[in-house]
Design a protein around this nucleic acid. Sequence first.
DNA 1: TATGAATGAGTGTTCATTCAT
DNA 2: AATGAATGAACACTCATTCAT
Lengths: 213, 213, 213, 213
Amino acid sequence: MLTPGAPKFRRRKADRPGEIVQAAMAVFAEKGFAAARLDEIAARAGVSKGALYLYFETKEDLFRAVVEQVISPNVQAVRALIASHPGPIGDLLRLVPERISVLMDTLPVGGVVKMVIGEAGNFPELARVWHDDLVAHALGALTRAIAAAQARGEVREGDPRMFAIEIISPMLIGVIWREIFVPIGAEPIDVSALARQHMDTMIRALTLPEARP
Amino acid sequence: MLTPGAPKFRRRKADRPGEIVQAAMAVFAEKGFAAARLDEIAARAGVSKGALYLYFETKEDLFRAVVEQVISPNVQAVRALIASHPGPIGDLLRLVPERISVLMDTLPVGGVVKMVIGEAGNFPELARVWHDDLVAHALGALTRAIAAAQARGEVREGDPRMFAIEIISPMLIGVIWREIFVPIGAEPIDVSALARQHMDTMIRALTLPEARP
Amino acid sequence: MLTPGAPKFRRRKADRPGEIVQAAMAVFAEKGFAAARLDEIAARAGVSKGALYLYFETKEDLFRAVVEQVISPNVQAVRALIASHPGPIGDLLRLVPERISVLMDTLPVGGVVKMVIGEAGNFPELARVWHDDLVAHALGALTRAIAAAQARGEVREGDPRMFAIEIISPMLIGVIWREIFVPIGAEPIDVSALARQHMDTMIRALTLPEARP
Amino acid sequence: MLTPGAPKFRRRKADRPGEIVQAAMAVFAEKGFAAARLDEIAARAGVSKGALYLYFETKEDLFRAVVEQVISPNVQAVRALIASHPGPIGDLLRLVPERISVLMDTLPVGGVVKMVIGEAGNFPELARVWHDDLVAHALGALTRAIAAAQARGEVREGDPRMFAIEIISPMLIGVIWREIFVPIGAEPIDVSALARQHMDTMIRALTLPEARP
DNA sequence: TATGAATGAGTGTTCATTCAT
DNA sequence: AATGAATGAACACTCATTCAT
């Protein structure tokens, strides 16, 4: 092999672990934990299988790293969302479609959601991390915003946590749909359009007439 | 065993395949396809591992049988639901909470949904069967009912398919929540109560004032 | 493959575990634990690699089984030896050569000794089992016999445990020699002859003139 | 590092290979060849794993170097021992305990013996080197000394090679014992004391009455 | 039918060895 | 000379599948 420029060993990159986690995220999201093969993760990351073990002790360890890596930027997004709800509830809800779009462009949300749903039973701690660090925060913030609006006479009576769930659910289902049914040729769901229409729906159903401008 | 007529508690052999499919459904729902072990399925079905191969050619084959077994009764339920919506849209929606409750008591819905979401990527035909035979039907029927109501001036304008999605989503999320987060100690979601509150929400948001009785 | 009489699956034998342990003993004795390959053990036992795992959980587990299997018959031999020393010490010592010969014909003593010596550091419990169940018993019995003979004025003064070690050592070295140096063409040691000459040596050195008949 | 003359504690590079061999000897003695990891050897030698390959081609090569390193000083000791036996056999034997003590303080004899015994099967040439260059020499010299003493009427009849083995064995066993059984809490053997008592034993048994002074 | 011992291809993991720096 | 990240072949172990009984 005299071809110059075809080195057997790649130069060591600064962010090997990051690249591996990216590749692993893709494969885990696609196949699930058990069906994912380290060979494929390594190939996609452009490294040898052995190299994975320079950065992660086991397959599980790598999976954990993926989950954490996915959660942390979202934690930021959630905090940002939480910080921006001073005004009337309608203003908050009208922000949601855009936020959702940004999130979906940033991360393979669908794959991640699929992964979490599919593996929660086999990795309870991961479900716990996911819930405690992300879902409960987001849901709690939205619930409190709604309760506050109820206290201000802006929103009609009803369980505020359930309202929050009602608000979020269609977008989640839209994301899952895209992951599950679009690949087999089902009619897509335009999640942004869905978000807009649903926010309109929720604003109409929640806000009291006397509070409307 | 020479006593004639004695084997009172002899295992009934009538529905071996059915028992196996039941056991398999439980294990697949719990672990996902790849992580499920035939050993465990056989043990739960009370048969030997070899016996599985008397009724099913491969693990995949058994998985397919599970999916079909789960779908078919639901197809019936969906057809029944579709057949029963002659009147105003509100009447139809008010039926949903009860139907949901019955469904959830009949089947391990959560496990199945989890299974479908988790394995759709690895088994595209299964996603297709699930979509074509069940989801598309149900969603289509609901969409058509809403479109008809719009034509009657009962429901405000908006994409009827999205309305259908908005209607169904929270219950699905509730079911998934029960499967994913309740086992790790998260606060449960009362799916029935959620269904009632959400139907109220949707009726308020969808029906036009002039159409209300 | 229509050739009859060439079954892919062997008939299940009554003593598969036993055969596997035999094969494993040979390979472990030859190579040591780490260098032994399960493939080879399986091949020598005439089974597939997977079959090993029907009977033993891990390679270590199999190794432990080998050590125990090797010890237990020896425990019997030692007890028998211990039981047979009523008379003067010379009578006891004159029994040793024959016992040694029998033992060496029964078991791959050399290989086992080699194995124990080579792996004691990596498997301390095994060294412990070997010592507690076998070596300490044998050495203790011999030591007590010598001490009793000293008390009777038969044997000259000196540390009886060291006398015991002096008595046994050459045979052990002979066995090790056979294992280590004979395969490379070194001059063999006739362990039986060595035992006879050494017993003569020890009887001469230990027994007091006045006690000699 | 611009300060000239500053690196007072700069690692002396003079004897890298020697340091590596020392570290390797320790690890090989502890674990055996197959179970020894180059990582650990490098760490103990205070160099990187790659550095080993600057001095040794392969792991086997390093192992060979260790064996040779261990043998050569002993060859000297043996020659010295051989040179010093002009007089009566008793004088020679009375030198043994002290020689043994010196040897044991100089080298990890136990570990080395363990290593040789454990790996002789996997590295026949090593067994050969060990035998030809060391063991055969030492044993031969002792055998000849005994034969000469027999010719002089000093020592009673009997196979002189076996007498030599009888003489040496207990000390070897003592060394092995220290390596194998002491770490697990067994009662130690005082090799020096054993050597003294055993030499006494052998002198009594070998020398003829008429030859005693 | 039914069993379960046995198989063997496949996967996670280790580690001696290599090479860009 | 020296490093240590990277490689890849080798090995322990798993598990869907088969077949003698």
